[in-house]
Amino acid sequence: MASYYDEHDCEPDDSGVHRNLDLLQFARMLVENSDMLDFDLDLDFDGFTLPGERRAPPASIAVVQALPSIEISAKQVQMGKKCPVCLLEFDIHEKAKQLPCQHQFHSGCILPWLKKTNSCPVCRHELLTDDPDYEEYRKQKEKSKEKEARVESLHNSMYT
């Protein structure tokens, strides 16, 4: 390392402060001059998630493949039942995909959605995913919810 500083005729700076400042300046330069560079600096933070709010992954491929297809009945057509994604009324005898929460969709409407995220577009009922991290996170969340409910019921039983 010493030779690096000798070669460049400078002293090692271990305070860290200057380096951070340099980085800050560099970041500012990138932001301010982004129009001069030949790429667009994407400052849209839509894809950015904070800890605690994570974007759900796609539904498990096996679960999606196993979704039952049902036939739309005359009664449902009479009631003007619509696919919640395209908002078109179903035709009689038309096939629809049914989620475990009983909500029904055109397969061309629900499949692209489940490739993006694992929940029902109507009620947010979650399907399994193929993402082990997300499944772990979901388990933890459920556990902490259960714990909260237990504390709440204990509290209620003590004060009633």
């Binding site: 839509d46 998630t49 709010e53 919640p84 994604v85 908002l87 947010r124």
Partner: peptide
């Protein structure tokens, strides 16, 4: 949230 990660396709 619904305009970001909580959007659902059945919203209008």
């Amino acid at each position: 949230d619904i305009l970001k990660d909580q959007w659902a396709a059945a919203m209008t």
